[in-house]
Write a protein that binds this DNA or RNA. Structure first.
Lengths: 208, 208
DNA sequence: ATATAATGTGACCATATAGTCATATGACTA
DNA sequence: TAGTCATATGACTATATGGTCACATTATAT
């Protein structure tokens, strides 16, 4: 966590530091991000930076676990609502939509998340979400169980495997739509999501 | 491509350099790999390294595009055979099996591939497979088209999207089985693959 | 006005890197 | 034996990094 001095800063200065940090962490992976560059762009002295943060990891953690998470929460309200009542596939759809909307509205924050999930340094990974983030498959495992209980889903499916597949897609599909396909239009995105859900609902085999 | 001097080396020395490079690139991502460490471990002088390779990228490219690809080819023969005759799902199964067997037999090479696919430096990505690797979704797009033509697959599916999903799973599923689930047993792996194919064949919706 | 505490600062440190180059070694040729 | 060429070498360069620290500045309290 940043030190008190950081939170004692004027909102403008604090925001400037956060913004410049977001810029850099969105552009580069953790190792390539330069603190020197951040302090230059934020127009503070190197020494000041270390008065606000313990070290580089402290800043990174703060972005990942506070700045980003706080933004993401807003996008999940719709999903949380649906979760109670709607069918499994409606809930899953809401989840995908939330993820894609977040990425559309906050491309830089989405980049940072993407960099983190793609990071292959196990030490860093551990140090960042040591305890703080539950196994990310857990959410979908829960949804699948609920879906089976409700009778929405085939009870014979391999839950852990299905959760893994759907989770990794939740993470990558937003990137794919926006960065690869460069789809901007909301309608088009909806069609893509529907097509994807259809694959998981009914499979791709020909029933002839 | 490495320089002639590299190929003029004795097989032992050449192999020693390759092995130590594989060690390092399996452990660390491109940026974190240190040439100094490789030359130390391979017991050659730093200057010698630069007589064999243009630069760091040259070595990396060589591992990725020659050493690894040449190994991978062996695992795809079975798949190539099946491709001609069998049904779409049989071919897909062969593809997944090939990927997983490669990862089981060559864990370090699989790590290197994994690091590369997860690398987020677009410049590096471009410089490495500039032209040399076709869009990796293309293989599965082709298979899907063939599958539809044969009548194996529902002709209404979104081919590009399906190809993306199946491709990204080909890449990540081997890692998941081996590193996350720590499944070693061949039978168990087969069951997992079958379960996965079933999801894509018939979907996960309850038909009641 | 004085003393104390909180912040700000940038030169500096230790460290590491990719890559170079003048020189040494050894092999092959005439 | 002398000369030529490919190869081997490691000290060295230029550069960059995260992090520190002695000191300067400002704000607060007495």
């Amino acid at each position: 966590m940043p030190k008190d001095t950081f939170f004692n800063l004027s909102i403008e200065k604090r925001q400037r530091i956060i913004d410049m940090a977001i810029d850099e962490f969105a552009k580069y992976s953790y190792d390539k991000v330069s603190i020197s560059k951040i302090v230059d762009k934020a127009e503070i002295a190197k020494g000041s930076f270390y008065q606000y943060f313990e070290d580089k990891k402290d800043l990174y953690k703060y972005l990942l676990l506070n700045v980003i998470v706080e933004k993401k929460v807003n996008y999940l309200s719709h999903f949380t609502l649906k979760m109670q009542e709607e069918s499994f596939f409606e809930v899953l759809k809401a989840l995908y939509i939330a993820g894609i909307n977040f990425a559309k509205d906050n491309p830089k924050l989405a980049e940072i998340s993407d960099h983190f999930t793609k990071n292959t340094d196990d030490n860093l990974k551990k140090e960042i979400y040591d305890g703080s983030i539950p196994k990310s498959n857990a959410l979908l495992e829960g949804l699948l169980l609920k879906g089976i209980a409700k009778g929405d889903l085939n009870p014979d499916i391999d839950i852990k495997l299905t959760a893994y597949i759907l989770t990794s897609l939740t993470i990558s599909i937003g990137e794919y739509f926006i960065k690869e396909l460069k789809v901007e239009d909301d309608m088009e995105i909806m069609t893509l999501i529907d097509n994807m859900l259809l694959i998981f609902e009914k499979g791709i085999k020909n029933k002839g």
